[in-house]
């Protein structure tokens, strides 16, 4: 069973890369673009067949490695 994880910087944590992308979009003529926040997308095969177990396992993975809770939030999507 596949899982998709989005890792994003918490609100209030400066995102200089997002800011640079926003400026680049403005200079390309997308003048209406507001705040841009950049994050990570991780897709993984959980090896589980039960969605509840798969989600619980990925939750543990996020806490232990995939995200840094000091600066990042995460969201998990289990497929199937």
């Amino acid at each position: 069973m596949k899982a998709k994880v989005h890792v994003t910087l918490k609100t209030g944590v400066l995102d200089p890369q997002g800011k640079a992308v926003q400026h680049a979009l403005h200079s390309l003529g997308f003048a209406e673009v507001g705040e841009v926040r950049q994050g990570k997308f991780i897709e993984l095969e959980t090896g589980e067949s039960d969605p509840t177990k798969a989600r619980a396992a990925v939750e543990e993975m996020c806490k232990k490695l995939l995200a840094n809770p000091v600066i990042e939030n995460y969201s998990i999507e289990v497929e199937g």
Binding site: V13, L14, P16, Q17, A20, N68, V70, I71
Partner: peptide, 17 residues
């Protein structure tokens, strides 16, 4: 050391990238 939780906080990308 911050990732290990031995020190608080985190080190982000430099503000001027």
């Amino acid at each position: 050391l911050t990732e290990a939780g031995l020190l608080p906080g985190a080190l982000l990308r430099n503000a001027r990238l």
